[in-house]
Design a binder for these strands. Structure first.
Length: 255
DNA sequence: ATGACTCCCAGTGGGAGA
């Protein structure tokens, strides 16, 4: 079984790339972030024609998430974090193929002294509490998405320049560790990986060509799933496309 | 270096992303 997460930075723009990618990489579950589409405008027919069932939760202009599932239907669908009042469409959870899958677009936070950062920290605290409760009910759980957190300095192309900046603050990293302490493991770090592995590269300044990026897109699996993890990789190919997303897909393979 | 690029909704610019 293979699952993947990809921040597509507008599904309206990136739909052909998503369909191409799924044809070449027929994962069982694909979590999308930053679809930037209200549900009525979601390209459901095109994706269903590619063999995937669709769960989507979007809004105009910003945010928006989806879960595409092949073969196994998604059930017990939850939108956003229960009990956390949020006008922003950031989370879809569903049960699929015996797994509890949470796809999430974590808040960016903009700057450490901003209201948006305070919202990010509140959101992260609510997510942790909810994930803990979900783990008690669903031991086989995957949390994946655009975390907007670089967990360690080795996840940052220039840790000195990024020190204390958004994605790299001690508060954000402590929240990432909180998810680990809740019983999840970073699937990417279960394996030896190429040095300077990133999942996002700035559109500006030839950052992709120079391989200057951050690893902020993650797949976390529960302890019960850890023995089943066979591989976790970042697929840089779509970042080489014309008009690419600034993020690359991350893929996990389970027995 | 208050930059750079891309997307969106707007409306001939500006916010947001990361």
């Amino acid at each position: 079984m293979r699952l993947a997460t990809w921040n597509v930075n507008s599904l309206a723009v990136r739909l052909p790339q998503v369909l191409d990618w799924l044809a070449a990489n027929p994962v069982d579950v694909l979590a999308l972030q930053e679809t930037k589409l209200v549900d009525e405008k979601f390209p459901q027919a095109e994706i269903e024609a590619a063999g995937y069932a669709v769960q989507r939760y979007g809004q105009k202009t910003y945010n928006g998430v989806a879960l595409l599932t092949r073969a196994a239907p998604a059930t017990e669908v939850v939108r956003n974090i229960p009990g956390f009042d949020d006008e922003q469409a950031r989370v879809l959870a569903a049960t699929c193929g015996g797994l509890r899958v949470i796809g999430a677009y974590f808040p960016n936070g903009q700057a450490p002294d901003s209201d948006k950062f305070a919202y990010k920290l509140r959101w992260l605290a609510a997510l942790r509490d909810w994930v803990q409760a979900e783990l008690a009910v669903h031991p086989a759980l995957v949390l994946m998405g655009d975390f907007n957190i670089a967990p360690e300095d080795r996840d940052v192309h220039d840790p000195v320049a990024w020190a204390g900046q958004i994605h790299c603050t001690p508060q954000e990293r402590a929240h990432f560790q909180g998810l680990i302490e809740a019983g999840l493991v970073d699937a990417f770090r279960l394996f030896e990986q190429p040095p300077r592995s990133w999942s996002w590269w700035d559109y500006r300044n030839l950052a992709f060509r120079r391989n200057q990026g951050l690893r902020i897109d993650h797949i976390l699996v529960s302890a019960a799933l850890r023995p089943r993890v066979r591989a976790c990789t970042i697929d840089k190919e779509p970042r080489r496309n014309e008009r690419p997303s600034d993020h690359a897909p991350v893929i996990v393979e389970l027995d």
